[in-house]
Amino acid sequence: MKLWSTEHIFSYPWETVIKAAMRKYPNPMNPSVVGVDVLDRNLDTHGRLHSHRLLSTEWGLPGIVKAILGTNRTTTYVQEHSIVDPEEKKMELCSTNITLTNLISVDERLVYTPHPENPEVTVLTQEAIITVKGVSLSSYLEGLMALSMSANARKGWDAIEWIIQNSERENVPLCDLC
């Protein structure tokens, strides 16, 4: 088991970042996400919006991991639960893979909040727990996966920036990009 975490700052207010985060896919940085579905969505009694989504991904496992695990590139499904609290200005998102779970589990948690000292920028804290199961090289593989997480985190930040810039430049509602 390996814990991975990072922090990123977006130079945009929280509302702008959250709008982009909700419409993050498709984007050119994450071509591996081939489908996104909303499974359930509701407002709770505190006025927070809960969304359960299913992400269909062509998971880019590092080649050596594929070789050792003996799995080919295949569609992997990820289930995601997000909560947007418009009053507290907080978006929290947890995701976990629901296929290949006999081989690996990647549990990720992202939290978007305004910067405590500068409301014009947004802080994203991101952490993941990676567990590779049933192989003797598991700690080595978990290290490789952590490296892959870092590369993917960078793509995720770029994706949010891309969504924001594209929506503002073209001045079209982002939903039309979906």
Binding site: V38, L49, L174, C175
Partner: peptide
């Protein structure tokens, strides 16, 4: 649905 939701959300 996405189009409707995204408009309401924003």
């Amino acid at each position: 649905y996405d189009q409707c939701f995204n408009r309401w959300f924003a």
